[in-house]
């Protein structure tokens, strides 16, 4: 008997929630502009697939863009690649990072908003690219292999390789 009472109360509560929801969705307060705002908020801006749009157009001379891609499920090497790339930049290129002459972008290839940039680099999983931008032109260097080879067990070597390649690209 007690259980039947509880079920009845629960049923009434659910009914109120449904009716409340129906009324609020159809209430005159919910104007057209609210609906547009709701749609706008739901959309996440997509990331540009144009490499040159990442470089600072006000800078004279070459600049370097580092693109690091990964999947949602990341392995130990993938995490080590990102960590050691960041370490390289923080240790040797903090001035260039502050100036905007070097930028690092990290994107999840499984996230649809990054589809365009992932496609530009044909990245479907972990990948690391050093891009030189100069005079409105870009040249891409794929260093993913170096990352996988050294990041976990010889990070110093990876840092040395990245430092040397970035310096080369800044010339």
């Amino acid at each position: 008997m007690l259980n039947m009472n509880r079920i009845n109360k629960l049923g009434i509560a659910i009914a109120f929630v449904f009716i409340g929801g129906f009324i609020s969705c159809n209430s005159p307060e919910n104007t057209e502009s609210d609906k547009i705002n709701a749609v706008t908020v739901a959309q996440t801006p997509t990331v540009s697939g144009d490499i040159l749009s990442y470089a600072d157009p006000n800078l004279e001379g070459p600049s370097v863009l580092i693109f690091n891609f990964h999947s949602t499920n990341r392995c130990i090497s993938c995490n080590a690649i990102e960590a050691n790339t960041r370490k390289t930049l923080e240790t040797y290129f903090s001035k260039e990072m502050q100036e905007g002459r070097i930028k690092m972008m990290v994107y999840n290839v499984d996230d649809e908003v990054n589809a365009s940039i992932a496609q530009t680099f044909e990245a479907t999983g972990t990948a690391l690219f050093i891009v030189r931008v100069n005079d409105g032109k870009d040249s891409i260097m794929d260093v993913t292999g170096d990352g996988f080879k050294y990041a976990k067990h010889n990070p110093e070597k990876l840092i040395e390789i990245l430092k040397s390649k970035i310096e080369e690209q800044l010339q």
Binding site: T124, A127, T144, D146, F148
Partner: peptide, 11 residues
């Protein structure tokens, strides 16, 4: 061939 492998494995 590590760099070649990682850059071309998608193809």
């Amino acid at each position: 061939l590590t760099n070649m492998a990682f850059s071309k494995i998608n193809k």
